[in-house]
């Protein structure tokens, strides 16, 4: 914060990234002509729209000092009601999303990868602003894009891998198919704001579920930038909904909504995860908690992605029909 102010203060007293460059170009004229940059209002992503918190609350983040763009920003601080509203949206979107063909879901996921790739430099900058080194940021962005491609290609294969034809001992045609569970509430990892979120939510939507996720509050601007990629990637509104806020405040509400059928939660706070597990019992929720997962885990293709993630995203339905004339 201190350093930010040293960097550039324009006559009006605004501190904004971008102004510095403008000054440098005009230096020889010895005229301080500022082109004021347009700061972005950072908003949460719900139902395909960018929204503020209904509560009017916000929290502030400051970019890492190494970054050229080290400004103070107001981020919506999601409330219980924001979560409830997002749940309603996600629930309404779920049947239609599940009814799309797996091929179509795969294409939409691939489209996301295309958009992420096209905006990769922006993501690297964003992660650096959030505290990552250039090298770390580049690795994280690459891994996130590759993970999107990975699940894009999985949408129309998980059925074949998880389903079965059951040779029952009788005159019946019997088979088992995977089906989406419904709406997942997700507590995304705090570390790796991009890769962590991608790792957690993509297998869920790949399998036909919809999601309300709480993104990392350490670097919410990267989370929101990812939402901007989502908004331009053919994902129907409501399939992925992302709130910015405090895990400790919001996550406990996961287990107060009966519409939350399942939970994926990453946290270093063991007590919070236990609270989610305990609260899940009242609706027999499918709840998977991940405590203090190491960074390397997310980059490891053997552990950070795979069929197991999709297995947790589905229910198995066994269907029987008699065979006969």
């Amino acid at each position: 914060m201190k350093k930010t102010q040293e960097k550039q203060v324009n006559p009006a007293g605004f501190v904004r990234g971008g102004a510095e460059i403008v000054k440098a170009e005009r230096a020889e004229e010895n005229v301080v002509t500022h082109r004021l940059s347009i700061p972005k209002a950072w908003k949460m992503y719900v139902g395909g729209a960018f929204v503020r918190s209904e509560s009017g609350r916000y929290f502030q983040v400051v970019g890492a000092t190494e970054s050229a763009d080290a400004t103070t920003t107001n981020i919506p601080l999601a409330s219980r009601k924001d979560f409830r509203d997002a749940m309603g949206v996600a629930q309404a979107a779920q049947p239609k999303w599940a009814a799309r063909t797996a091929y179509n879901r795969g294409q939409i996921l691939y489209r996301l990868a295309e958009i992420l790739e096209a905006r990769s430099e922006e993501f690297v900058r964003s992660l650096v602003r959030g505290g990552a080194t250039e090298a770390e940021a580049a690795l994280e962005v690459a891994a996130a894009i590759d993970r999107s491609v990975y699940y894009a290609g999985f949408a129309d294969k998980l059925g074949a891998l998880l389903a079965s034809s059951n040779p029952v001992a009788g005159p019946h045609f019997a088979f088992t198919v995977p089906e989406p569970i419904g709406v997942f509430a997700v507590l995304a990892p705090q570390k790796l704001p991009l890769l962590g979120l991608v790792t957690t939510i993509l297998p869920l939507v790949c399998a036909g579920n919809t999601v309300v996720a709480i993104g990392s509050d350490l670097d919410p601007r990267t989370v929101i930038t990812f939402c901007e990629a989502l908004a331009t990637s053919d994902f129907p509104g409501g399939v992925i909904n992302v709130l910015t806020g405090r895990a400790k405040e919001l996550a406990p509400w996961f287990v107060k909504h009966r519409e939350v059928r399942a939970i994926e939660a990453y946290s270093d706070d063991a007590a919070l995860l236990t609270e989610l597990e305990r609260g899940s019992a009242d609706a027999v929720r499918r709840t998977k908690t991940h405590h203090a997962v190491a960074r390397e885990w997310f980059f490891d293709d053997r552990r950070g992605q795979g069929l197991g993630f999709l297995e947790r995203a589905v229910e198995h339905k066994s269907i029987w029909h008699p065979v006969g004339l």
Binding site: H172, A174, T176, V284, E315, K317, I319, W320, H321
Partner: peptide, 28 residues
């Protein structure tokens, strides 16, 4: 539902996964 019987009911087999959606259970 975890099991749907079409034109039949209450059929069980070791080869056929059995278990519930929602508050009828976890796992198969």
């Amino acid at each position: 539902a975890g099991v749907v019987w079409a034109n039949t009911f209450n059929k069980f087999d070791a080869t056929s996964p059995f278990g519930g959606f929602k508050e009828s259970g976890l796992g198969r």
